[in-house]
């Protein structure tokens, strides 16, 4: 889809909702080099959200949407959970169907788009909670990686089932006392990033959403690599401030505290040699293009 597809018939311009008009006027579909710095100067692809005030998921969501390399040709897949309260406000096509089946949906979707648009790139990006990714949907998460499906999986890891009120999840820390873990969680946080690496992911990152620039780079890499080579996985700490007893303004500090070098969300990246070479090649092409443009001027 190019920007021409969202043009408004002049006759109807004045009756269109203002947010749609803004999307047409200053949305960043088709903008080369789009990124988090567009926020504030252009229309974001997320209109608003009904998450708790200050929920770090909302920040992460905005950074991700600002960083998708080609939102005009990206379809997102969500799952039930706090993220499903945001997707209805998102201006890229997105699918919510059931809880936990997101990687199966994405598998069918990506294949359909490849059959229907053999000469066009259509990116598929999954964004779901930790319960959806690791517990109820683990089978489908892993199987999509085993098969080498070409899409990106992003997990908003808030270390619990937030949307149902703070129950134990597989990504919860050991010992944490939560609903359904009344004497503390008995087993370790599931090591999904490592499992992802062993399951065929080309690029795996474990991080927090504290630094938009970092999120942008990771998301862009993850989408580019998935496009060409195979599955990519990004696990982002988006603390549920409500359930861990933090105030609205404390989310950022919580992320910063948890990404210290010895902490569980210290930035960790795994990339295959193939993916590394591919990114280097993309970079070289981008630089060559920029040099050529400069020379032409």
């Amino acid at each position: 889809m190019g920007k021409d597809k969202i043009r408004i018939n002049e006759e109807f311009y004045d009756i269109m909702p203002p947010e749609y008009r803004e999307l047409v006027e200053s949305g960043t579909y088709g903008k080369e080099g789009r990124g988090w710095k567009d926020m504030g100067s252009s229309k974001e692809l997320i209109e608003e959200h009904s998450l708790c005030a200050g929920c770090p998921e909302s920040m992460a969501f905005r950074y991700i949407l600002a960083s998708l390399p080609a939102p005009e040709d990206t379809v997102m897949v969500g799952s039930t959970g706090c993220t499903s309260l945001v997707f209805p406000h998102v201006a890229v096509h997105n699918i919510h169907s059931l809880f936990g089946n997101q990687n199966a949906i994405a598998t069918g979707l990506k294949r359909a788009l490849m059959v229907r648009f053999p000469n066009k790139v259509k990116d598929v990006v999954v964004l779901a909670g930790d319960g959806a990714t690791v517990d109820i949907g683990l089978d489908m998460t892993l199987q999509s990686w085993f098969r080498g499906e070409k899409f990106t999986t992003i997990c908003f890891d808030n270390e619990l089932y937030a949307n149902t009120g703070g129950q134990e999840s597989g990504l919860m820390q050991k010992g944490f006392v939560a609903k359904m873990a009344p004497v503390g969680k008995k087993f370790d946080k599931v090591r999904l990033p490592e499992i992802a690496r062993e399951s065929g992911c080309q690029y795996v990152v474990n991080m927090t959403a504290s630094q938009p620039g970092k999120v942008e780079k990771v998301i862009r890499n993850a989408v580019y690599i998935a496009r060409e080579l195979g599955p990519t996985y990004v696990q982002i700490y988006t603390p549920c401030i409500l359930e861990i007893g933090k105030q609205s303004m404390e989310g950022l500090q919580e992320m910063r505290d948890s990404e210290k070098p010895t902490e569980r969300f210290a930035y960790k990246e795994y990339i295959t040699d193939e993916a590394k070479a591919y990114l280097a090649d993309l970079d070289a092409k981008r630089k060559a293009k920029a040099t050529a443009q400069l020379a032409a001027k």
Partner: peptide
């Protein structure tokens, strides 16, 4: 998973 894969493909216009 199969029926969800079918759903994904149908959502994508197949």
């Amino acid at each position: 998973a199969v029926m969800s894969q079918c759903a994904g493909a149908a959502f994508g216009g197949a």
